[in-house]
Design a protein around this nucleic acid. Structure first.
Ligand code: FES
Ligand code: FES
Lengths: 144, 144
DNA sequence: TGGAAATCGGACAAGAATGTCCTAATATTG
DNA sequence: CAATATTAGGACATTCTTGTCCGATTTCCA
């Protein structure tokens, strides 16, 4: 569904949002450990998210990544997905034609479009702050 | 959403089903041309589908691939997807945890499961014969 | 002011997905 | 029976994704 890179991005963002609720900042090392992601690779992902303006990053000692609650409420999942995977999720055709296009649709178009619209709606209406609440309550997990 | 291999598989299967309605059999060359897929690679995909029992294949001159309407009505998309991509679509976690698991869910689980169930339902209830009808009417396309 | 702690970013490495090529096996047709 | 058309399948090549490493830069703090 999403690329592995994007999955790492979502996990990290939700985690950082949870710490952000306590005004805390997280280092790469903690993030990688808590999400069960490869450290060096996660660094790249976090850099991308920071450049996209989704996360705040601070260099130097006591630095790290940060996402204050006010901002976390405005960060919808689709922003993360778009920043990492681009709009492939929204524009792609279910049967692999170059672009989904209702004027010259693939046989699956009608069926597929509906599912994809549901997915898009879900991504657009879910913010990372909300997702971080379950984490904090301990009812949801970022690794196993 | 699906692998490229799987997209080729779906395109080919729907095409063959259309020809099957006229009792015709298709050769690899025709299939690759009509679906805009790389020939040699498509050969592998068709072999997989034949081994999985989704297509009938005949070797030798005047041979090719075949899917009679009676069978096409019973071949649901989820069979093709499963034959090529495995059950990753059904069992995978939206945030990349090893397996979707409601007992120890990721923060996205509830939201994600719903979309995935819709997708699964769509795949399970759509058969390739139905999809081939639009193709034949010329209202849907397999390449652009 | 210098060392330690951290992100940034480029170059490289490993692995998976996608794609090609060639030979063998098999069936049709003249 | 021989030639031809076709699928089957293994080995190899290429490209994309995922992952590692290392040096540069920035900031904090003693
Ligand atoms: S054209 Fe294939 S999904 Fe829209
Ligand atoms: S556990 Fe992540 S989707 Fe179910």
């Amino acid at each position: 569904m999403f690329s592995k890179t994007c999955e790492y991005a979502i996990r990290a963002t939700v985690l950082i949002a949870m710490e952000g609720r306590h005004g805390r900042r997280m280092s790469l090392v903690e993030i990688a450990r808590s999400t069960g992601s490869p450290q060096a690779f996660t660094a790249k992902v976090l850099q991308q998210l920071a450049r996209s303006g989704i996360l705040d990053s601070t260099k130097g000692a006591r630095g790290g990544f940060d996402l204050p609650p006010a901002k976390a409420k405005k960060v919808k999942l689709n922003m993360v997905v778009k920043a990492i995977d681009g709009d492939h999720v929204y524009k792609g055709c279910g049967m692999g034609l170059p672009q989904c296009n209702a004027r010259k649709p693939c046989p699956l178009h009608d069926h597929f479009q509906q599912v994809r619209d549901d997915l898009r709606h879900m991504l657009e209406s879910t913010d990372v702050h909300t997702l971080s609440l379950g984490l904090e309550r301990g009812t949801t997990y970022l690794k196993r």
